[in-house]
Nucleic acid binder design. Structure first.
Lengths: 210, 210
DNA sequence: TTAATCATACATTCATGTATGTATAATTGA
DNA sequence: TCAATTATACATACATGAATGTATGATTAA
């Protein structure tokens, strides 16, 4: 075929990433071959091997497209959230739910990460990366919850680590439920109602206090 | 090799299922070959192909060993739970958490189902089965929540379908969090504290009411 | 002229499924 | 009861297809 201009090459790269999202979603990560993606994208495996080292590299690049905006959002929230920690926690889930519900890329990639790939050592760097991100999130939220306690937004006896675990479990649980059955409820509207119930609980129930 | 007696044959079958749990857990379902399982069990693929049709059949049998006790427990709870619906809901999670936290088979299999396998059409009957089970659970819990409202255990304006989604999302979220990081909290003790917070919330917060 | 952007062709590995072999438990018949 | 037969419970060997990675070719932007 003809040689493409740099812009066209970048287009095919994005096309490959878009196509990978769809095919991974349909057949699972380990269930799809590079030939599947290539044919679905209307190219050959040569194109894939030019832009990416292998399937793992392609998968990582696909994740990166949605991970970066997420992490920058988190980093941004950490700055201006000190005055209103609980408000920041609410904003964070709100952003996540809205993003996944409205942006197809986020929808597909999170669906893949939650339900269409196997979290085993084989993924290597993905797992490590994910573990580090989880740890960073946990630390970040621990500080936020601690700030909320300090500012009187939460009861002084709140068990912060437990509350963080509950917060993470609930948000991910809602996310995963919706990804498995998007028709069963509205992620943004109903999901935030659930989270508001959670935030109410932190103030009223003694279950997560020492 | 020698021909085994019927009992010995059943032992190797169970050995294969046990080994499959471990290997699937380490390398993921699609990442493990039947040769992996065979060598880990100290037999050859011939043994596997004698007891099971193929990998999917082995996987299904492995799931069945934990699914059956679960479903009978659910069915039993449906009988004597009509007098105290909320108590039944609590008992159900309590049983789940305790079982997964203490029984290695349940721990491994749920870990596989949650994190180490791809929920795509390829699994075929597993997916269908799971969808039917989910639907049955949802109906069951919808009735239970409705009973709780009728008996005055929950506010009359409670949005039952939303509450059910919240209940399912929370329990599964807690389960999954713990399976990913078993050291981060105690599934039974802390998990039930989280759920108690949830039950408190249903009575105090207006977030899940109409 | 060179190097980028793929398509094409080829070699290799690897998992699967099946066919066959084998030794013995289980069963049958007298 | 005891050989003779049969079916069981695997191990071994083989054929097949499929996915991967690489090497090479072709065309044209730079």
């Amino acid at each position: 075929m003809v040689k493409k201009t740099k812009e066209e090459a970048l287009e095919t790269r994005n096309l490959l990433l878009d196509t990978a999202e769809c095919v991974f979603n349909q057949k699972g990560v380990s269930g799809t071959t590079l030939a599947d993606i290539a044919s679905a994208a209307g190219v050959t495996r040569g194109a894939i091997y030019w832009h990416f080292k292998n399937k793992a590299d392609l998968f990582e690049a696909m994740c990166e497209r949605v991970r970066l905006p997420m992490e920058t959002m988190i980093a941004a929230g950490a700055e201006d959230g000190v005055a209103d920690p609980m408000g920041e926690l609410r904003k964070t889930v709100d952003y996540f739910f809205l993003k996944v519900a409205t942006d197809l890329h986020h929808h597909r990639v999170f669906d893949i990460l939650f339900n269409k790939c196997e979290f085993v050592e084989q993924l290597g760097p993905i797992i490590d990366r994910d573990a580090r991100v989880r740890e960073a999130f946990r630390e970040r939220f621990e500080r936020t919850f601690a700030n909320a306690v300090r500012l009187g937004q939460l009861p002084a006896s709140t068990n912060v680590p437990l509350a963080v675990n509950a917060y993470l479990s609930y948000t991910k649980g809602i996310m995963r439920s919706w990804l498995l059955e998007p028709e069963s409820f509205d992620l943004h509207r109903d999901g935030m109602r659930m989270m508001d119930g959670f935030f109410d609980m932190l103030g009223s129930s003694t279950a997560l206090r020492d």
